[in-house]
Computed example of a mutant assay.
Amino acid sequence: MIRAPLGDSRYWSEWVEYSDQSIVDALETAAKPAGDPDYAPQHVFIIAQKHWHQMLSRYSAGCPIADLSRYFPGLLDAWEEAERLGA
């Protein structure tokens, strides 16, 4: 059951898969030393954004609501790390 009328199941499957890989790629990039440490908080906060966007995308795609909770710990971890780095 798709909850958003923006696309069909193939559309949502492609975006959900892309976003999962995008989170993995962002985490790998964040694990490497940054060229300018002043950008580190923003980069890590983008990881938090990717998690909540994935939650919204999966919800819109009609995924079971119980499946959305797996993105919440990553969202909180990235948000807290961005706050720590920015302090």
Rank of each mutant, 00 (worst) to 15 (best):
A4S: 15
P5G: 14
L6C: 07
L6G: 05
L6M: 12
G7I: 07
S9V: 10
R10W: 06
R10T: 14
Y11A: 07
S13H: 07
E14H: 14
E14C: 09
E14W: 13
W15T: 03
W15A: 09
V16R: 15
V16S: 15
V16W: 04
V16G: 05
Y18I: 03
D20Q: 13
D20T: 07
D20Y: 08
I23S: 02
I23E: 07
V24Y: 00
V24A: 10
V24S: 05
D25S: 04
A26D: 01
A26K: 04
L27G: 01
E28G: 07
T29A: 15
T29W: 03
A30N: 05
A31R: 11
K32S: 03
P33G: 03
A34T: 09
D36C: 06
D36Y: 09
P37Q: 03
D38R: 15
A40M: 12
A40V: 14
A40G: 01
A40N: 06
P41R: 02
P41C: 02
P41I: 01
Q42V: 10
H43F: 04
V44W: 00
V44F: 01
A48C: 05
K50H: 08
K50W: 02
H53N: 13
H53I: 06
Q54N: 14
Q54M: 08
M55N: 02
M55E: 10
M55K: 00
L56E: 13
L56A: 15
S57Y: 04
R58H: 05
Y59C: 06
Y59N: 11
S60K: 13
A61I: 08
G62D: 10
P64W: 06
P64S: 14
P64T: 06
I65R: 13
A66E: 15
A66H: 11
A66F: 08
D67I: 10
D67T: 15
L68P: 03
L68D: 07
R70M: 12
Y71F: 15
Y71R: 07
Y71C: 12
Y71A: 09
Y71G: 06
F72I: 10
P73Q: 04
L75V: 07
L76S: 13
D77S: 13
D77M: 11
D77T: 10
W79Q: 11
W79V: 01
W79S: 09
W79C: 05
E80V: 06
A82M: 08
E83N: 08
A87S: 13
